[in-house]
């Protein structure tokens, strides 16, 4: 490199390759700062401004301090606080989908990795269970919307068997159930693959030792698999939680954006979307909801992390 320079003024004690390290990780940081960090801070910044369109007239941006926060946390005249309602909807629909998703994925992962069962055609099954994840959520939602509509095939079957038409999307629990089921169907394959990787990472000799000691399958599962799989489970839960809090496309399409029935399927991001993509392009309110979402996500992730952390004491 320095072959063109003749003078060697400083003696190198050692050659530092560190700069190459920085060089190679630079692209990530550049992209991260440009695409994530700056938008993140600008969201916080926007939350303190009144900034929307009235008809074709731009209002603001005017600095309004915490006014948007106050608006978000002001109850409606009948005493309901929409943001809490939307948070509740989001969490309920996430739990309805995520709990079965993780249990089911865990079961499948154990079955697929079991030495005793030796399931044949594993690649085939793995592909099949992962398949729903490849399909666009919007397409999935459209499909279920058509299936369960009042004139759809499900109701036609119910009628053919002498039943009454059931209005799936105007009943709180069936509407939420369908949304949760779509999310479950889309994500359990992904979770299965992650958990399988985790289980395969556990030292096989532990399983063999347990088998020699005469442990039952359930004992192996609860005493070996689960504890050693905990880091992966935490990862799965936290990523699922973050994804779940941002639930948007499925309920948006299932309820045509209205959050019907009675705003019980309206999620936080649907509200955010109504502000930012609605008639007024309300950056201020959208910013406040984003911050709220950010804080909720942080707090819940922290709780999950704290709750599942291995207990201290004994050996260290």
């Amino acid at each position: 490199m320095s072959s063109t320079t003749n003078t060697v003024p400083v003696k190198h004690k050692s050659i530092s390759y560190a700069k190459w390290g920085y060089f190679f990780i630079a692209p990530f940081f550049v992209v991260y700062v440009a695409c994530s960090l700056i938008p993140l801070f600008s969201t916080f910044y926007n939350a303190f401004f009144e900034n929307y369109i009235d008809g074709l007239t731009q209002v603001g941006p005017n600095f309004v301090g915490f006014e948007n926060f106050v608006t978000l946390f002001t109850p409606r005249p009948d005493g309901r606080l929409e943001i809490i309602n939307y948070t509740g909807n989001t969490m309920i629909m996430w739990i309805m989908g995520a709990v079965p998703q993780i249990i089911f994925a865990l079961l499948l992962a154990v079955i697929f990795t079991s030495d005793r069962m030796k399931i044949k055609g594993q690649p085939f099954f793995k592909t099949v269970i992962y398949m729903p994840n490849i399909i666009m959520a919007a397409a999935f939602a459209m499909l279920f919307f058509t299936l369960f509509s009042r004139v759809g095939p499900v109701n036609q079957m119910i009628q053919a068997n002498g039943g009454e038409v059931f209005d799936f999307f105007n009943n709180k629990w069936s509407a939420r159930g369908i949304i949760a089921f779509i999310n479950f169907l889309m994500w359990f394959g992904n979770t299965t693959i992650l958990l399988m990787a985790g289980i395969m990472g556990i030292d096989q000799s532990l399983f063999e030792a347990a088998a020699i000691d005469g442990a039952k399958s359930s004992q192996v599962f609860f005493k070996i698999t689960i504890p050693l799989l905990m880091p992966i489970i935490i990862y799965v839960v936290i990523t699922a939680l973050i994804g779940g809090l941002q639930m948007f496309d499925v309920p948006q399409i299932i309820s045509s954006g209205s959050g019907a029935p009675n705003n019980t399927t309206k999620t936080l991001v649907m509200s955010l979307n109504a502000y930012i993509n609605g008639a007024s392009k309300n950056y201020g309110m959208a910013g406040v909801i984003s911050i709220y979402l950010f804080i909720i996500t942080g707090v819940l992730s922290f709780i999950v992390f704290k709750f599942t952390e291995p207990k201290k004491g004994g050996k260290k």
Binding site: S36, I238, N273
Partner: peptide, 20 residues
């Protein structure tokens, strides 16, 4: 964990823009 969640929030934020 906090950093990771911040990163994921931001990354998922990008995802939403795409959806929109």
């Amino acid at each position: 964990a906090v950093l990771a969640s911040a990163l994921l929030v931001a990354a998922a934020g990008c995802g939403n823009n795409n959806n929109n």
